[in-house]
Simulated scan of single mutants.
Amino acid sequence: MTRNRQILLVARPRGEATADNFRLVETDMPALVAGQVLVRHHYLSLDPYMRGRMNAGESYAEPQALGEVMLGGTVGEIVASRSDRYRVGDRVVGMGGWQEYQIVDGDRAGALRRVDGTAIPLSAHLGAVGMPGVTAWYGLLQLIVPRSGETIVVSAASGAVGSVVGQLARLRGCRVVGIAGGPEKCRAVVEEFGFDACIDHRLHGDTRSLADALAAACPDGVDGHFENVGGRILDAVLRRCNPFARIAICGLIAGYDGQAIPLREAQLILLRRLKLQGFIVSEHLDFWPPALRELGGLVASGRLRHRESIVHGIENAPAAFIGLLHGQNFGKQLVRLI
């Protein structure tokens, strides 16, 4: 009988998430019935959106249920099958959650997606060739719609989403300026991911200072912005936007602990006729196949670089997740489970 270790959400955060919000449990996996498969997870994805789902308030999706396995993307291998659609040894991506194993109905549409772990590393299917990569692709290409010669700004530029946004924009002939936290991350954004410049927001404690840094890095203004953070970063970018600039809002991590995020100069949206669009990539499934084809080809050929922060063991997922929310990760945050 297979023993399965799981992380449950047992209490909703009051302010910042803490280790007390989670509990590690161990259970026995039941025997498979006809049509089911047993997936052993190799990697678990940790993502900022999970913090919002831990709250009980209104959101774009149902809150994470208390006493249940924390939600999350996974990639792994079929280790037992009673389904005609999957064989033992198949590599699959799914939403297996914070646990080492999962039983899945092999006939349920969209529950699993086969992936190739040869040309593309298995872990990349949770990052650059997974949900973060598709998020970057959709927000940039469908909402910002960059044109060659334009200037694109990306917040959280060293992260799993932001790093892909910048590289895709560079491939389309744009000048790309990142915003990241710390000299090491800023150095990698330029030297490893190929951005034209990167601003260390930790050196700029107020909106005016950050806006001045953006003015120096973006002498022709800002034509497009990919927002992952919000707060003073968005305020500073709005000050530098050209008329008719487009802003794709993917995340607002500055407010994930429940605090309000004021917008200090909302009048700029009207004065400069700006377009701001929030989006949730899971609502645009028709775009996933073309996005994954391009992203997969770029990663396989080495034209798209990606970084990973990996911790080992399901028991370390809560601490790694809390670190992610404080910017301690570099690139895609993963938990290795084998």
Rank of each mutant, 00 (worst) to 15 (best):
L238S: 00
G117A: 15
E68R: 14
G149Y: 12
A80H: 13
E184R: 09
M95I: 10
P121A: 11
L38T: 07
L210I: 08
L24Y: 08
I280Y: 12
R114C: 12
A213S: 14
M50P: 07
Q36D: 14
D206Q: 03
G96A: 13
N329C: 11
R170W: 08
E265L: 05
R23Y: 08
G52T: 00
G73V: 03
R5L: 01
C241K: 02
F22R: 01
D105M: 11
Y60K: 01
V104T: 11
G159Q: 00
G224R: 05
I314E: 00
C186T: 10
G331W: 03
S158G: 14
V165R: 04
I78P: 02
L71G: 15
D200V: 06
G297M: 08
F22S: 08
G110R: 14
C186W: 01
A245Q: 07
L112K: 02
R187E: 11
G67P: 00
V92N: 02
A216E: 15
D28E: 15
W98K: 06
G313M: 06
H306F: 14
T27W: 04
G230L: 06
F321Y: 10
R113G: 12
N316T: 06
V281M: 10
G296W: 01
E283F: 15
S148W: 11
L171R: 15
G296A: 07
F279Q: 12
L270R: 13
V134F: 14
N4I: 07
F321C: 00
E294A: 07
T18I: 03
R3A: 09
Y101R: 03
Q333C: 12
A19K: 14
A160C: 08
D220W: 09
V93Y: 09
G94K: 02
P146Q: 09
D206T: 05
L143P: 07
I338P: 12
G178S: 09
R273F: 09
A136C: 15
Q99A: 07
L71I: 15
S81P: 03
G162P: 05
R272Y: 01
G127I: 01
Y86M: 13
R336W: 12
A17I: 11
G296N: 03
H42G: 05
R147Y: 11
W288M: 10
R51G: 01
L298G: 09
V161E: 05
L210H: 02
E191V: 06
Q6G: 05
V177N: 07
G278T: 13
V229T: 05
A80K: 14
R303F: 09
V104W: 04
V177Y: 00
Q277E: 15
L304H: 13
F287E: 15
A34Y: 10
R303M: 12
P219L: 09
M54K: 01
A254C: 05
L126T: 03
I179N: 00
Q328P: 00
D257P: 01
A245G: 13
R264F: 03
M70Q: 08
I233P: 01
S123W: 10
C186D: 04
K185S: 02
M131I: 14
Y101E: 04
T18C: 12
D116M: 03
L304D: 02
Q167K: 12
Q99F: 06
R147I: 10
D47M: 11
R239Y: 02
V299F: 00
S81G: 07
A128R: 05
D235W: 04
G94H: 09
